[in-house]
Design a protein around this nucleic acid. Structure first.
Lengths: 224, 224
DNA sequence: GGGTTTTAAGCTTTGTTTCAGGTTCGCTGG
DNA sequence: CCAGCGAACCTGAAACAAAGCTTAAAACCC
C-alpha cells in the first residue's frame, strides 16, 4: 500500500508518516501543494492524505485539478478543527473523506482503510469498524457470516460509536444524540444498551470491543 | 474567561450557562438579538454563543453587524438540526463556528475551547513533558510503547503538573484545582496521589521525575 | 402478543480516602 | 560539627465510595 502525504507542518507530517509506517504502509511525504499534485498525478498511490492549508497551491485546488486530470486516487483531506467551511469545500472539490485536526492515530487508520477498500462502493450504505459492519438500512450488525438484528436505540448507539473510530464518546454525547438534549434519560439506560451491544458483538463473534473509560465514556477498539 | 449567551429559549439558555459555569467560565445571558448585539459590542467577552432564531434581530444579522463594527470576538452559532442553509449563512455572515441543536455539553466545551484558544497551540489532544505524553481524551499516560490508564484525579494532577513544566506547583494549588476551592481535603491525600503517579511514571519507564520541594510543592523534572 | 425500551436492584470493579508506621530532611543546641 | 528532634513527607494496606455491569421484570407500543 502506497500513501502520499502532503502536509507543510513538518512535525505533523512526520507523525502521520510514522503512524502509517507502523501499519505497514509505504509512505512518501511532500510539503507543498504543487509537489503534491505532481506526485499524486502519477497515480502510483493507493491514497493521498492532503492538508488544506498548503504553500503554493491549497488542498482544494490540488484535488480539483487531480480530478480534472482523471486521477481517481482516494483523497483524505485534513482540516483545522474549526474551519467548518472546509468540509463542504473539500467534499465539493472531489475529496473522498475529510478529517479534522487533531485526530487519533486509530481514526486516521480507520479512515484510510475504509478509503482504500471502499473504491466504488456506495457511500454510507454501511458503517464499518474492524471486523464488523452495520447495515444502515436493515439495522443489522454483521461480522463474517453471522449477523444479528439491532433495535433502533442499540443501532443508534452503535452507529455513533462507529462514526468515532478509536475516539472516546461520552455518555452525555450518546444521550443527547440518541434521546435528545432535553431528555430525562439516566446513565444507567446507556449502560444497559452498552451491555446489550457487547453481548451482540460477542454473538456475531467480532473481535471489536467496547472499552469503558471510567468517568469519560466509551470507545470502540479492535481486539488485536 | 467571559462568555455571552444569546438565546431566547430560557431552558436551553440556562442549560448552556450551567455547563459553562461548571467549566469555570463567567457567563452573561441575554434573550434577544438586540441585547445580544449591545452586550457583545462591548468587546468584553472571550466568546459569544449565539442562537440563530431570536426575537428582534436574528443571529446572522447580529454577527454581521458585529463584524461591521470591527468586533472580532469569536462567535459560536447555534442552529436547528438540519437547517442546512444556516450553515452557509452563518459562516458567511462572520461566525467562527456553528453547532446544531441538540448538542452534548462535551461538544460545546470542545468547540468553545477551540475558539478561545490561541492559534498554534497543541495540535494533538495531548500534553507532553520530557518523554511522557498525556492523552487528554482517554486519560492515558504514554511513554514510548507503554501506556497506563490514569484515574480522574491522578489525571488532573498530572495535567496540572505538565501545564507548569519545570515550575513548582503547591499542594494548595493542586487541591484547589482538583478538588475545588472549598474542599476539606488533607494534604496527605495529594501526597498519596503523587505517590501513585510516581509509581505509574515508573511503570511506563519514563525518565521524568516528580521532585518534592519541601514546604513548597512539586515540580516535574526530566531525568537527565 | 412480540419485540423494544425503561426501570430497578444487586453485584462487580475501580477509584478515592484514610490511617498508621516509616523515612527523610532541616533545624537547633550542645 | 553533629546528635537528636520534630515537622514534612512517603507509601502500603484497608476501608470506603462511586461508577459501571448485568439481569430480570415492568412498561410501552405497535
Amino acid at each position: 500500500m502506497y500513501v502520499l502525504i502532503v502536509e507543510d507542518d513538518l512535525r505533523l507530517a512526520d507523525a502521520v508518516a510514522q503512524i502509517l509506517r507502523n501499519n505497514d504502509y509505504q509512505v512518501d511525504v511532500v510539503h507543498d501543494g504543487a509537489d503534491g499534485l505532481a506526485y499524486a498525478e502519477t497515480g502510483n498511490y493507493d491514497a493521498v492524505v492532503l492538508d488544506v492549508m498548503l504553500p503554493k497551491m491549497n488542498g482544494f485546488d490540488v484535488v480539483a485539478e487531480l480530478r480534472r486530470r482523471k486521477v481517481a486516487t482516494p483523497v483524505l483531506m485534513l482540516t483545522a478543527r474549526d474551519a467548518l467551511g472546509d468540509k463542504v469545500g473539500g467534499l465539493d472539490s472531489g475529496a473522498d473523506d475529510y478529517m479534522t485536526k487533531p485526530f487519533a492515530p486509530a481514526e486516521l487508520m480507520a479512515r484510510l482503510r475504509s478509503l482504500t477498500r471502499r473504491q466504488g462502493e456506495v457511500l454510507f450504505e454501511t458503517a464499518e469498524y474492524g471486523d464488523v459492519k452495520l447495515d444502515l438500512d436493515s439495522c443489522d450488525l454483521i461480522c463474517g457470516e453471522k449477523s444479528i438484528h439491532l433495535g433502533y436505540k442499540e443501532f443508534s448507539i452503535a452507529k455513533i460509536l462507529m462514526a468515532n473510530p478509536g475516539r472516546v464518546v461520552s455518555k452525555e454525547t450518546l444521550i443527547e444524540k440518541v434521546w435528545g438534549y432535553d431528555s430525562e434519560v439516566e446513565d444507567n439506560n446507556v449502560e444497559a444498551y452498552i451491555s446489550f451491544l457487547r453481548k451482540k458483538f460477542d454473538f456475531v463473534g467480532s473481535k471489536v470491543k467496547i472499552t469503558t473509560l471510567r468517568k469519560v465514556g466509551y470507545r470502540l477498539d479492535e481486539g488485536e
